[in-house]
Computed example of a mutant assay.
Amino acid sequence: MPAIDSVIFDSADPERLARFWAELLGRPIASRKGPYVILERDGGPGLVFQKTDAPKSGKNRVHLDLASPDPASDRARVEALGGRRVEGYEDGGFLVMADPEGNEFCLIPPDRSPSTTPGAPTTSTPERVRKDLLRRGPRLPDRPGLRRLRQGRPGRGHEIMRAAVAAGGTAVKEAAAAQWGGYYGYFSDPDGHLWKVTTAT
């Protein structure tokens, strides 16, 4: 039966792309063979970057999901290394990023992996975050795991974000005006869960 040996990235500049992934994953460049730049293995599939002149076209049909206990912090690392955030996936509970050549990948909190066994226990939002937010006013959703806060009163977005950070969370995107007229922002709680805050105009 076949087994996955390596994941191969087509690349216009394999040296640059390999350095990005080496820094991000802590897997140094191990070797170079012809058009290939190869990262050290860490017990899983190899990562190999091969030179190609064909430009990237459209969204990747295959992408990597990176388990991240702190997506907000790892997002900052990705951006510092030359990657970027991909917009349009804000409600997924994870962050979609792109490397310097536009290859999409995801930063996934531990309980959001699509390969997690259905029904397996997951880590809930820390009780201290929940209690602190309740004390400061915003109503948390009734259904566990629904990481979204909605407020009808104008101006609440910044208050909620400040409360979340004071309770140990991390601001991912400060509350800002949305095209639909209201305000929205994102924060991650201490377990790395991504929350979206939406308020009225």
Rank of each mutant, 00 (worst) to 15 (best):
A98K: 07
G92T: 09
S124A: 14
G181E: 10
E104V: 09
S115C: 10
T125Y: 04
F105P: 03
A177H: 09
D99S: 08
P109N: 07
T170Q: 14
D111S: 13
V172E: 13
P121A: 03
A120F: 07
V165W: 04
D132C: 10
E104R: 12
A164D: 00
G182E: 10
I108C: 10
Q179E: 14
P114F: 14
G102E: 06
A176E: 14
P138E: 05
A171T: 10
T122F: 06
S113D: 14
M161L: 14
L107Q: 03
S124V: 14
E174A: 15
W180H: 11
L133E: 02
G152V: 00
A98G: 11
E127S: 15
P141F: 05
V96K: 01
E90K: 06
T170I: 06
P114G: 10
G168A: 11
P118H: 04
L149S: 00
V96N: 02
G157T: 00
L146F: 07
G185M: 04
R136C: 08
R112P: 08
V172P: 00
Y183L: 15
L134A: 14
P121K: 11
A167Q: 08
A163L: 07
R150E: 11
K173M: 14
L146R: 11
E90W: 07
G137C: 05
G157N: 01
Q179H: 15
Q151V: 03
D142I: 12
G155K: 01
R148D: 04
G181F: 09
R156P: 04
G102Y: 08
L140S: 05
R143W: 06
G102P: 03
R139Q: 04
P121I: 08
A176M: 08
R139A: 12
E174M: 13
C106V: 04
M97D: 02
S113Q: 14
A166Y: 00
S124M: 10
D142A: 13
G145V: 06
R143L: 09
P110D: 05
L95Y: 00
R153V: 11
R130E: 12
S113V: 02
A171V: 15
G155C: 00
P114E: 01
G169C: 05
S124T: 15
A167I: 06
R156I: 01
E174T: 12
P100C: 01
L140F: 03
D99L: 03
T122E: 05
L107I: 02
G152Y: 00
S124N: 13
G157H: 01
R156L: 01
F105E: 00
Y186G: 05
G93Q: 05
R128I: 13
